[in-house]
Amino acid sequence: MDNQIISMIIQGVGETLLMVIASTVLGYILGLPLGIILTVSDKDGLKPNKTLYKILDVIINILRSVPFLILLIILIPVTKMIVGKSYGTIATIVPLTVSAFPFIARMVEQSLKEVDPGVIEAAQSMGATNRQIVFNVMMVEAKVSLITGTTIVFASILAYSAMAGALGGGGLGDIATRYGYYRREEQIMWVSVIILVVMVQIFQSLGMLLAKKMDNKKK
């Protein structure tokens, strides 16, 4: 491969990281509070609210059931309104975030519900408020599960970003599609795919290492 192709792939790596990291952060900004609200408002939660839980539950289930490529197309007007265009690296962050936050909300809900009820009851008996229980007890107790969930979220968003490349989303997915599929330059395609796989493996390894470290501290 010549220097121009190497430079293009390096740029593709940067664009992919930008899409994935930005979407993950924005996804957690939206999904984390939703996951907490779902946990608290559930029938066995700290402050049950059947109506609120049902509304959020239906919305999240609907968003999670829409295939990403369909969501990408549906959100074109919204994406264009927010960033001024419907294609490219920055534009792809919008559908990636919309796809990520319902998944994150559900994972946060599941992680928080795994916390031992005895720990929560102990905090309540000491006069802790619901807010203190959520942030000082449940979030702390569930941190290993939350970190593990983040590695899954990262891998999923990375896969979606590659799919977005088929529709001009930028990044390594775009390079693999443009050169590997349309131009039949298989070498570039395989290099892009291998880099994507390596990125997932590195992040998952770091995430699992951090989760294991947290778990050992907890013990």
Rank of each mutant, 00 (worst) to 15 (best):
N3E: 14
Q4E: 13
M8Q: 13
M8P: 08
T16D: 10
T16N: 11
A22L: 14
G31I: 01
G31A: 05
L32C: 14
P33D: 05
P33C: 06
L34Y: 07
I36R: 03
L38M: 13
V40Q: 07
D44A: 06
D44R: 11
T51A: 08
L52W: 12
Y53F: 15
D57A: 11
I59D: 03
I60D: 00
I62A: 06
F68C: 06
L69D: 01
L71E: 00
L71V: 08
V78W: 03
K80C: 04
M81I: 05
S86R: 02
Y87V: 15
G88D: 01
I90P: 01
T97E: 08
A100M: 10
P102F: 06
K113E: 13
V115L: 12
G118S: 10
V119F: 03
I120T: 14
E121M: 09
A128S: 13
N130L: 03
N130F: 03
R131G: 06
R131Q: 09
I133H: 00
N136F: 08
E141W: 05
E141K: 00
A142N: 05
A142R: 04
V153R: 06
A155V: 09
L158E: 00
A166C: 12
I175T: 03
Y179T: 09
G180V: 08
M189F: 13
W190G: 09
I195T: 01
I195E: 09
S205N: 11
S205M: 12
M208E: 12
L210T: 12
D215F: 10
D215Q: 15
K218F: 09
K218L: 14
